[in-house]
Computed example of a mutant assay.
Amino acid sequence: MPQLLAITGSPSAHSRTAVVADHVLRRLSHAGFTTEHLSVRELPAADLLSARRGEPEIRRALDAVAGADGIVIASPVYKASYTGLLKAFLDLLPQDGLVGKTVFPLVTGGSLAHVLAIDYALRPVLSALGARHVTAGRFVLDSSVERGSGPDRLRPEAELDLFQAVDEFAAALRGAASYATEQPTAHPTAHPTAQPTALAATP
């Protein structure tokens, strides 16, 4: 089963974005996927901002991205875009850091006026990093996250809409996994005009 990683880029310790991302991970976990949550705010700030890729916690975070088949990229809207904290982490990835991966963009904000932040701010950088498939994703209003004495939860209508997108993401992941499994392994073959010991390049 594909490995999934949620990366949240909110600087807040009481992040609505993290709440929504956790809802996504629970849905995917119940569907049988192995999931992990990386909160960028918990990485050492000096190492993150100085791009110290070799430091242990930064290295582990980058290895988690490299080992994941699917990535949930989640951020609140700050100044009509994703956060600088998330940008600092994405800048640590190699240029092909998302190659072969299916990515689900997730953005939270206080107004539907920011809904285009997914397509005009986040999606281009995900494509630039080589993501195999960036799914439709979702924008979730801050007001959809209900807080009280118990666990934070989503309003039912927001949860239903979110889970529809999550199920589409899961289907895309399964499709990518099936495609990879079905591809034949290439083997070098002898070139008809070559000497017996020579091998032609695989077409």
Rank of each mutant, 00 (worst) to 15 (best):
residue 1 M to C: 05
residue 3 Q to M: 15
residue 5 L to G: 05
residue 6 A to I: 05
residue 9 G to F: 08
residue 10 S to C: 09
residue 13 A to S: 11
residue 13 A to W: 08
residue 18 A to P: 00
residue 18 A to G: 03
residue 23 H to N: 13
residue 23 H to T: 11
residue 23 H to G: 08
residue 26 R to C: 13
residue 26 R to H: 15
residue 30 H to Q: 12
residue 33 F to L: 12
residue 33 F to S: 05
residue 36 E to P: 12
residue 38 L to T: 10
residue 41 R to G: 00
residue 45 A to P: 02
residue 46 A to F: 12
residue 47 D to Q: 13
residue 51 A to P: 00
residue 55 E to T: 15
residue 55 E to I: 08
residue 59 R to I: 01
residue 61 A to C: 09
residue 63 D to R: 04
residue 63 D to Y: 00
residue 67 G to H: 15
residue 69 D to Q: 11
residue 70 G to R: 09
residue 74 A to F: 01
residue 75 S to M: 12
residue 78 Y to Q: 00
residue 79 K to P: 01
residue 79 K to A: 11
residue 82 Y to F: 02
residue 83 T to R: 01
residue 84 G to Y: 13
residue 87 K to M: 11
residue 89 F to I: 01
residue 90 L to I: 14
residue 93 L to C: 05
residue 95 Q to D: 13
residue 96 D to A: 11
residue 97 G to T: 04
residue 101 K to Y: 04
residue 101 K to S: 01
residue 102 T to K: 03
residue 104 F to N: 00
residue 105 P to C: 04
residue 106 L to K: 05
residue 106 L to C: 08
residue 106 L to M: 08
residue 106 L to N: 03
residue 107 V to W: 00
residue 108 T to M: 03
residue 110 G to M: 10
residue 112 L to M: 08
residue 120 Y to S: 07
residue 122 L to T: 02
residue 124 P to Y: 01
residue 127 S to L: 14
residue 129 L to T: 04
residue 129 L to E: 01
residue 133 H to N: 15
residue 136 A to S: 15
residue 137 G to Y: 14
residue 139 F to Y: 11
residue 142 D to W: 00
residue 142 D to N: 08
residue 144 S to H: 03
residue 145 V to Q: 04
residue 146 E to V: 12
residue 147 R to F: 11
residue 147 R to P: 07
residue 147 R to Y: 10
residue 149 S to K: 15
residue 150 G to K: 14
residue 157 E to W: 07
residue 158 A to L: 02
residue 163 F to C: 06
residue 165 A to K: 13
residue 167 D to F: 06
residue 167 D to L: 06
residue 168 E to M: 09
residue 170 A to C: 00
residue 174 R to S: 13
residue 174 R to K: 14
residue 176 A to W: 07
residue 176 A to N: 08
residue 177 A to H: 05
residue 179 Y to F: 12
residue 181 T to K: 12
residue 185 T to E: 08
residue 187 H to S: 09
residue 194 A to H: 09
residue 199 L to S: 03
residue 199 L to E: 09
residue 202 T to V: 14
residue 203 P to F: 00
residue 203 P to D: 09
